[in-house]
Amino acid sequence: MKLMKEFTKGFIKENPVFVMALGLCPTLAVTTSVENAIGMGFAATFVLVFSNIFISLIKNFIPAKVRIPAYIVVIASFVTIIDMVMHAFVPALHKNLGLFIPLIVVNCIILGRAEAFAGKNNVIRSIFDGLGMGIGFTIAIIVIGAIREILGAGQLLGFDVLPQTYKPVLVAILAPGAFLVMGLLMGLMNLKKK
């Protein structure tokens, strides 16, 4: 029962993007389409789960003083792994996400979870925490990606969803659109909370 809570808290209550405003850079940068959002969400979840597992396993051997550098090395290794694997097997997606795959290293969500959760809890709970947070992140960027893709291109996952007469609001898939959609969604979340 407790495990279930660790798992689901990341979806809404402690959603890393909307509630804690972490990992904003990839959230805004890669959400020009749902496809990119799914790819980014998957990559980040992979890194989050595996770095959580490893950090929780080795936490007792690491002196407190070098905790952060040690975490960074672990995270950077998993980022490099997913970078190489994506480059080899999904080259088109890898090209679209570009710079933002190596930048998962400095995504505050991952170091944040390592420091706040995996460094203090056992492996099983850390897996659920990582998985939940990763899914929460993925849900958030898919929502933003979907809104931007529908408004900005009239498409969803590359298929036309709006009638041909719809004139796409280009600004939604340009840089400013990312900020505007994000701001309005955060406002909406605040409104719901009250």
Partner: peptide, 14 residues
């Protein structure tokens, strides 16, 4: 009230 803080900062950034 619901737009205060982060949300409005995002809109300004936009």
């Amino acid at each position: 009230a619901s737009m205060k803080g982060m949300p409005i900062a995002m809109i300004v950034a936009g």
